[in-house]
Amino acid sequence: MLVLLLAIALGVTLGLLTSVSVPVELLTYLGVAVLAAMDSSLGGIRAALEQTFHDRAFAFGFLTNTLMAAFIVFIGERIGVRELYLAAVVAFGMRIFDNLSQVRRLLFQRWRWE
């Protein structure tokens, strides 16, 4: 668990140190992609707690989720339905909270708080 917290902290520091800035045109793309990545990470943690984690499945899911999210934004922009990215945002948002609640439940079980 500590390793994971360290990883996210490392990612943030890396981002701060390299001072990478997303171009304005790609803001929506990356925003949805970030949501997808967060969802995938939470899903991975959940799978690990459920003893069903599979590293290849995780990596593949991570990639496809982020790419698909960006692709949905792209499609929306192409066909003139810019609000399509909202669908991705809502879907990923719901999944994030769903995964979060599952992780919480599994952790409570593990630590015998229930």
Binding site: L10, G11, P23, V24, L27, F58, F62
Partner: peptide, 26 residues
């Protein structure tokens, strides 16, 4: 497991910062 999750979270953190900064400049 830990390695892959760590990489994923690292990416999430990195992307978050990049996105935050881009949004700020926007």
């Amino acid at each position: 497991l830990l390695a892959s999750l760590a990489v994923g979270l690292l990416l999430v953190g990195f992307l978050l910062v990049a996105q935050w900064r881009g949004n700020q400049s926007f």
